[in-house]
Design a binder for these strands. Sequence first.
DNA 1: CTGAAAGCGCTTACAG
DNA 2: CTGAAAGCGCTTACAG
Lengths: 335, 335
Amino acid sequence: MSNNITMKDIANRLGVSSVTVSKALGDKEGVSDELKQKIKELAQEMGYRYNTLAKAMKDGVSYNIGVIIAERFTGMAQSFYLQFYQHVAKSLEEYQYSGILHILHEKDEAQQVLPRIYYEKKVDGFIVLGQLDKHYIEALQNSGLPLVLLDFYTDKSDVDYIITDNFYCMYELTNYLISNGHRHIAFVGSLYSTSSIQDRFLGYYKSMLEHRLTIGNGYVIEDRDEKGRYIDFVLPENLPTAFVCNCDMVAFNLINDLKKRGIKVPEECSVVGFDNDIYSTITEPPLTTVEVNMQEMAQTAVKKVIKKVNNKTTNAGRVLIKGKIVYRDSVQNIN
Amino acid sequence: MSNNITMKDIANRLGVSSVTVSKALGDKEGVSDELKQKIKELAQEMGYRYNTLAKAMKDGVSYNIGVIIAERFTGMAQSFYLQFYQHVAKSLEEYQYSGILHILHEKDEAQQVLPRIYYEKKVDGFIVLGQLDKHYIEALQNSGLPLVLLDFYTDKSDVDYIITDNFYCMYELTNYLISNGHRHIAFVGSLYSTSSIQDRFLGYYKSMLEHRLTIGNGYVIEDRDEKGRYIDFVLPENLPTAFVCNCDMVAFNLINDLKKRGIKVPEECSVVGFDNDIYSTITEPPLTTVEVNMQEMAQTAVKKVIKKVNNKTTNAGRVLIKGKIVYRDSVQNIN
DNA sequence: CTGAAAGCGCTTACAG
DNA sequence: CTGAAAGCGCTTACAG
């Protein structure tokens, strides 16, 4: 078991008090530079390690933030949020905070069982990564701890959300298709399944409206049922020249589907996705898509929880973070 | 800012001492059942939350374990270790511990800079997830904190390793190919790049030896250079009837390569992988591969660090965890 | 510039 | 069965 040097030990060796050692190591006023220097050197030499726990207890905070991810988001194909968590953990480091990951089981979510780290005061606040049951969010709010929701939002207006600007990104992406000569453009995604899909659809729709283009018959194509299970696509009789997919995985599936029907991508039909995840590069051809700015989203979320922990009241609201279009080979210029 | 009820508050309300409250809530001896009951109820009613920090400080432990993953393992295609982390975090929960993820930057790894959570006594031990620089491991050992290495091993014998039984799994998988009539079997993977690849190769080799089969000319195929970058395959002139790939991603690439040459999988050529990750199901046909038992590996690692934290001296050594073969459609029976 | 005292919230002997 | 005292390692007034 490692060493266990305390400030008192250093103080004793130097014949000073532990108060002085505390001031010196904390670079506080009221210790001569000379003594400070000496103390720091000895601390180094003795292999002193600061005990955060003691400070934490004094301050009444833990210097930890809990990050909650629903178990269903952590499956194999869905590493997206674990990826995201990494950025959150990194951002927390910058504030001398640590992240504690809590994988939320379905049952606990349904019964509003808060994480153990809450009941043990191990965290000063929560970041929720990915959509959760509304009642669970309410339970978290009632806990009184600072709360920031990352990568989704609901109709509750008294909460902080940090989200990708789905609407605007998809608007831009559709504009891009149109500038490439496309007029018959379909959308792939079930509009009632998540708010992200809805907003992406609306961005697509705005672009269409702005360009006075109409959405053809059967041009809004379902990709999953009410339980979120993926279903087979029902393609319209008159094929569009381009498909806007709500995510890369669906674009991947669609392209395979089109290929099976003997339709060449992008020569006969263009396809774009969203997320810039693994599916965008696996696809043949690689996908033109939108890359989410995880890093900035994570940083923003972290900044916000920590501000709230420090009692700086902030206005609740949605913060939209812009993504960027990644141009690859799945769009044909048909001008 | 949430409530801040302490044991003293409960004690005051009931006209007892905080010692009694502590005993009651901890279900210790020496409090009448009646009083215990009353205290518990009041605690519940007042929304009391236990302060782990206080206990932690008293005990001189943090009830946290640091989990270190090199940044290079956390890229998009490589979510494997983040996935793994999740299981570790879950296992830690069972011991009332929390995991703190530390993403190790390349520079810190090279200069043996230990994580902040070490210098701040925020963790009682470390689990390292995935191969790290040898000198860094040494630095961790010298820190004196309990240490367990997960999913890799080195030539240092005084450390604890928890690894997949790569050797045996690949041995079984190759046996399976042979039982399906294959005699000309090649291995794909650069033998000098990681210990996993080496061991998988040796398992393949043992199976070949046991069945008195020889490894054909050019039948050990490089898949990456010394820096770990993937390279184009150089296939042997006389194609084998089956390829044993060191991982699913390489199998995925190989199959695409074969397809481009007009070779049908599995009709003309069988391919197996390892890991059962996303590539195994994306491939057409889906891959027969080996699934690593992350959960058991995580549990074993967690059990071991915590035992060490509690000073139960354990013998250092390698623990091998068996994976299981997942049968899909990439192997042809040619008997 | 330096340090004695008190306190953060709990638990562990020990005494009654 | 119940509780006063001391201590975990630090920091924050406050006094000298």
